[in-house]
């Protein structure tokens, strides 16, 4: 029992989960309630299936990318182009779909698979391009992805003439499938987020490539001396980052029913924030896919809190900015306390 408790308390995610639960409790207690128009029952403004699912859904789009970003950050890199990769995959896919299925309302069961393949493929290709440029030119990833951030969005802009392109409604039916949940609850993006986070966690902690990602980030020279194929590892992390942007683009495009070149503008900052709030260290060698997802959930929850507590919307950026700094500082303090406690316990 004490052992189980210490495992939970000592786990990497405990702090984040605790903060999320605490904020959730506060919202439940102070968010007030409203009368449901259909049933006439009083419903808590926060603690109801629709709101909770909305928080998770909004989080899912950048949580998925935060899993890829975490891998990049573990290697001491950064990928600023994820928001643009997302827009590019969405726009290109939507354009292909509009050629294949000119009437969006017509049932098109194959469209989902075409869209999924295209989005993921384009995202992966964009990520590979980043990886190859970074390793071949030997330029810092900040610069390369800063460049491709403009380029990818520019390509999407030119090709689409900045128009919003509708996608077949069968995509929306897929993304908003209730799967037997309560009315108004659409779990598909959230399920996708959970799958990506668990897959990312398995990849990072259980595979050879995952271990090498940590090694490269922990000590590049020693990894090279250990026969780790550095360039291949770097290409892989940027490819995965691009791939996750493609996944997010597919889900969001399907969910919202359209794509345009201005989609996900500034998303890279939410994605980096999620990874960092989730404990990924820009110094490299440290990070977790599950924590990155929790980081995204926390940010989405803060946005919800502003709505539920009826705080002036204008304060959102200030609050999120403060939350990021506080989260990272707290993480560092608790890591220090935790390691001190661990070593004392051993003696």
């Amino acid at each position: 029992m004490r052992r189980a408790l210490s495992v939970i308390l000592g786990s990497q995610q405990f702090g984040l989960v605790a903060v999320i639960l605490l904020l959730g409790t506060i919202l439940t207690l102070f968010g007030g309630s409203h009368e449901d128009r259909a049933t006439g029952q009083m419903v808590n403004n926060f603690l109801n299936p629709q709101t909770l699912m909305q928080v998770a859904t909004f989080a899912s789009f950048f949580a998925i990318m935060a899993v890829g970003m975490t891998m990049v950050i573990i290697t001491t890199g950064i990928d600023l182009s994820v928001g643009s990769t997302y827009a590019l995959s969405g726009v290109l896919t939507a354009m292909v779909l509009s050629k294949m299925y000119p009437i969006v309302t017509q049932p098109a069961p194959g469209a989902v698979w075409v869209a999924m393949g295209l989005c993921l493929g384009i995202g992966l290709a964009a990520g590979l391009l980043n990886g190859f440029l970074i390793t071949a030119l030997g330029v810092h990833p900040f610069i390369i992805t800063l460049g491709t951030m403009w380029i990818f969005r520019g390509v999407a802009f030119v090709l689409s003439n900045a128009l919003s392109i509708l996608v077949p409604t069968s995509l929306t039916q897929f993304a908003k499938a209730p799967l037997g949940f309560a009315q108004g609850v659409t779990p598909v993006p959230v399920i996708a987020m959970l799958i990506v986070a668990v897959a990312g966690w398995l990849f990072l902690t259980r595979t050879v490539t995952g271990r090498r990602i940590f090694a490269v980030g922990g000590n590049l020279t020693a990894s090279q001396y250990s026969g780790v194929p550095i360039k291949r590892i770097l290409v892989i992390v940027y490819a995965v980052s691009g791939l996750t942007a493609g996944i997010a683009a597919f889900l969001a495009m399907s969910y919202f029913g359209s794509a345009q070149s201005a989609d996900a503008q500034g998303y890279e900052l939410y994605v980096i924030a999620s990874a960092v709030v989730g404990g990924a260290s820009l110094a490299g060698g440290k990070g977790s896919a599950i924590s990155a997802m929790l980081g995204a959930l926390l940010i989405s929850l803060i946005q919800q809190a502003i709505r539920t507590l009826k705080i002036n919307q204008e304060y959102e950026w200030i609050i999120i900015g403060c939350a990021i700094i506080i989260a990272v500082v707290l993480d560092r303090v608790s890591a220090r306390v935790g390691s001190a406690r661990l070593t004392q316990g051993r003696l």
């Binding site: 000590n219 020279t221 020693a222 001396y225 440290k286």
Partner: peptide
Amino acid sequence: RQGLVLGM
């Protein structure tokens, strides 16, 4: 510098 990944 070359031998170990100290974080591991």
